[in-house]
Write a protein that binds this DNA or RNA. Sequence first.
DNA 1: GAAAGTAGTTTCCAATTGGAAAGTATCAAA
DNA 2: TTTGATACTTTCCAATTGGAAACTACTTTC
Lengths: 119, 119
Amino acid sequence: MKKKATINNTPVCQMRMQAISDSMSILSGKWKFHILGTLIEGDKLGFMDLLREVDGIGSKMLSKELQDLEMNRLVNRKVMDTKPITVQYSITEYGKTLAPVIDALAKWGVDYKRSISGK
Amino acid sequence: MKKKATINNTPVCQMRMQAISDSMSILSGKWKFHILGTLIEGDKLGFMDLLREVDGIGSKMLSKELQDLEMNRLVNRKVMDTKPITVQYSITEYGKTLAPVIDALAKWGVDYKRSISGK
DNA sequence: GAAAGTAGTTTCCAATTGGAAAGTATCAAA
DNA sequence: TTTGATACTTTCCAATTGGAAACTACTTTC
């Protein structure tokens, strides 16, 4: 009998796992997916719009998360010179590449809910 | 001029956002996706296998995360009556339904890496 | 001049997260 | 009998996360 080999150390697998960690390092936190999902659906939302749309978030978190997302080129921040100054947040083209991830997550969430609450 | 209507309050959108929150409430934390991804690739891994495969995790976290995942019926825990007791962790059929989410996340992570580190 | 709406920032605090290290318990091989 | 391997658990602690509330600052409306 041979001794147990070090399981599947295929480089493919390692890369994949690293990729997952990379994604999550950017998308971690309680609100990122929610904010991105909202911006993908309704483009060009103001700060107060987002505060109302993203259920439960406070202004501090929203501000911080938007800064994170902006830094990672996932959302755009555009200051409009309107009478009371307004800001338009929108998803970037690059941010839109996250749509498959968010769609998959939303789809799974719906199925999950169905699986627990009767049916 | 009308006053600004309450933006897109389509029920579809609300449901979608709720679904995302539901998913994330189960998949939150630093390690869940990593562990699930590992178990989807290589089935039937022992505790120590996972400790080695999931880069950087400690035994406390691994133990806790596995309990969470087991509670949510995403992974199976099977105690084998071998000489030194061993445990086999594997993904459940239900856990496999997360494959599209994890695949999308991994795919995005690969593209992300490419987009930052030069071409 | 007070109220309300824009877009945040700041402070203060509590809870959660997560890591290192050591400990528990069992069994087998050297 | 000491070492090593399995599978955890416990303790202790530091860092991070996140929320409530108050505050800034500017402008328009009542």
